[in-house]
Amino acid sequence: MRHLYIPTNTAEPTTLPEGSQTLHLQGSSMGTTWCVQLIGKTNLTADMLQQGLQYQLDQVDRQMSTWDINSDLCRFNRAAAGTWCRLPEAFCQVVDYAIYLARQTAGAYDPAAGKLVDLWGFGPQPRSSAFPNAARIMQAMAGHGWRDLQFERHAARLFQPGGVSLDFSSIAKGYAVDQLARFLDAQDVPSYLIEVGGELRGRGIKQDHSPWWIRIEQADGQSSTDKTAHESESGSEHLIALHELSIATSGNYRQFFDHEGRRYSHTIDSRTGYPVDNKLVSVSVLHRECMIADALATAFTVMGYENAIAYANQHEIAALFTQQQNNTISETRSRAMSAMLEE
């Protein structure tokens, strides 16, 4: 059994106030579900916190949804060529990092892959019965892309060069988790565990003084936020104490479709135009910010194991890679992840 402990540069969890109450709140947003377990002062009502958390999520959805034609993202995608679009602050934070990561990974992470996502049937429109052929893929890849995006952070505006279609599916949920954390911090909530669509962020300790234990999602899609962990074939489990930490997992087993005996993942490599086809089954990334962990997990999935672990080691990113070759499942950790694990 392996446990992940709090990094040495992280402050100890705050002692819980006397008479603290435990609340379990949940709801729906962004096409998925969310859940928050928190421990706080008795003057914080469940209704107030529920409404506040839902409002934060709905704001992210209103700005970055590909399903809502009135969202800021869809408005940008429809904008005429050569126009500047003013953006709200949350959108600015996400697009700023998304463009940065696209440059860092030479397009392995691509926030402007919307046309390809739609073509392969993983966008808001139902999947077409016609399988994408080479001509349609080339057409979706033609024209302007993420390299043509111009972002002026000080003016909060983004340039639409013409035909660029943004898709924030691989980063918006992580950002939403961070927004919920900021909201709870502003309410002086000392301890919480946040989950939005499988991405998590934690802080503090529970009433019994134990940390918020979670386990890394297994390749069969099972996950849990308690101590009843699923044993892998190697007989090990990965339990993580989330304090001032986030975790995001990208897995090709999550969304896919089969065609003529072959499985096609929802993760698209916009450099080739096709869904990723490598040995990586899943990638889990730990980071203080869930937005960054979310985007990096996707980028690593596209990059493939060798390039991804080299990047993770170079940038000191804690990541766990699960690969499958034939019927064999193997796990490899980046150096930063190994340094945090104790056998």
Rank of each mutant, 00 (worst) to 15 (best):
R2Y: 12
I6A: 07
P13S: 12
T15E: 08
L16D: 05
Q21R: 03
T22W: 09
L25S: 01
S29A: 15
M30Y: 03
M30D: 02
W34Q: 05
C35M: 08
D47A: 15
M48N: 13
M48H: 11
L53R: 13
Q54V: 10
Q54S: 14
Y55N: 13
Q56G: 03
Q56T: 06
R62S: 15
Q63E: 15
M64C: 15
D72I: 05
L73K: 01
R78A: 12
T83D: 01
R86L: 12
F91K: 00
V95S: 08
A98W: 07
I99M: 06
L101Y: 02
A108D: 00
G121I: 12
F122G: 00
P126S: 05
R127N: 06
A130Q: 14
A142T: 08
H144S: 14
G145S: 11
D148K: 10
D148Y: 06
R153E: 13
H154M: 09
L158I: 15
G162D: 14
F168T: 07
L180Y: 08
A181H: 10
L184F: 12
P190V: 10
S191N: 03
G197H: 08
S210V: 08
W213E: 07
I214C: 05
E217D: 02
T225R: 01
T225F: 05
G235Y: 11
G235R: 13
E237W: 09
E244G: 01
H259R: 06
H259C: 09
G261N: 06
Y264T: 04
G273L: 03
N278G: 06
L280S: 03
S284E: 00
L286R: 01
A295K: 01
M303W: 10
A308I: 02
A308K: 05
I317S: 04
Q323H: 09
N326H: 13
N327A: 09
I329F: 09
S330I: 02
T332P: 04
R333V: 11
A336P: 00
A336S: 12
S338D: 14
S338G: 11
